[in-house]
């Protein structure tokens, strides 16, 4: 057994792996002492919190919301055939996702958390909540319009058949 494979067995990866990670840790330590110089605990909390925020807070939150939406709107779940699935739940899921995303990024302005905003910029602070609500409304309306158009399109063959039957009945009279 060569020395390298012995190292791999004990360490679990190649020596290059170790060297690269150690180099990155050295850089992180060099920048990290400067980052933590000041409010050490605050910065450390923000850094670790940022790592956990999505995985332990946002993800459970939106996973549960999505599950609830599927319960409520997922009537056509598990449809037959090879066609890509198009359950109705996506017509709620997509606008909800986009609206939530806009709020996640712009919440300080939308929820009027920035007290000095107007004093600093000379711009009114009261417009963001209205904009966000109107965008959200527009997203749901657009989604509903697409759903209606899709239903209309999908029911095309049935409607044509019904029309044909009516016409046939008329002709025999």
């Amino acid at each position: 057994m060569s020395k390298t494979t012995g190292f791999r067995r004990r360490y679990g990866a190649s020596p290059l792996h170790l060297l690269l990670v150690l180099a990155s840790f050295a850089l992180a330590a060099y920048a990290g002492v400067r980052l933590l110089d000041g409010d050490t605990l605050g910065v450390a909390l923000w850094f670790v919190g940022a790592a956990l925020l999505h995985d332990l807070v946002l993800l459970p939150l939106y996973a549960v919301t999505d599950r609830a939406a599927q319960r409520l709107f997922g009537r056509r779940e598990g449809g037959v055939g090879q066609a890509p699935p198009r359950p109705g739940v996506n017509h709620v899921r997509v606008p909800l996702f986009v609206s939530g995303l806009l709020l996640l990024v712009w919440w300080p302005l939308v929820l009027r958390q920035v007290g000095h905003y107007t004093a600093a910029t000379g711009l009114p602070a009261d417009r963001f909540l209205g904009h966000w609500l109107l965008i959200t409304a527009a997203l749901f309306v657009a989604s509903a319009a697409i759903l209606l158009a899709r239903r209309w399109h999908e029911s095309g063959p049935r409607r044509r058949a019904a029309r044909g039957r009516r016409r046939a009945r008329g002709a025999t009279k």
Binding site: A28, G32, L35, G38, D39, V43, P108, V114, H116, Y117
Partner: peptide, 20 residues
């Protein structure tokens, strides 16, 4: 968004954070 709730100067946090 001028929402300075982070624990320190933005320049310090954003610059050194980027290097970490």
């Amino acid at each position: 968004q001028l929402h300075y709730i982070f624990p320190g100067s933005f320049y310090v946090l954003h610059f050194y954070g980027a290097w970490v």
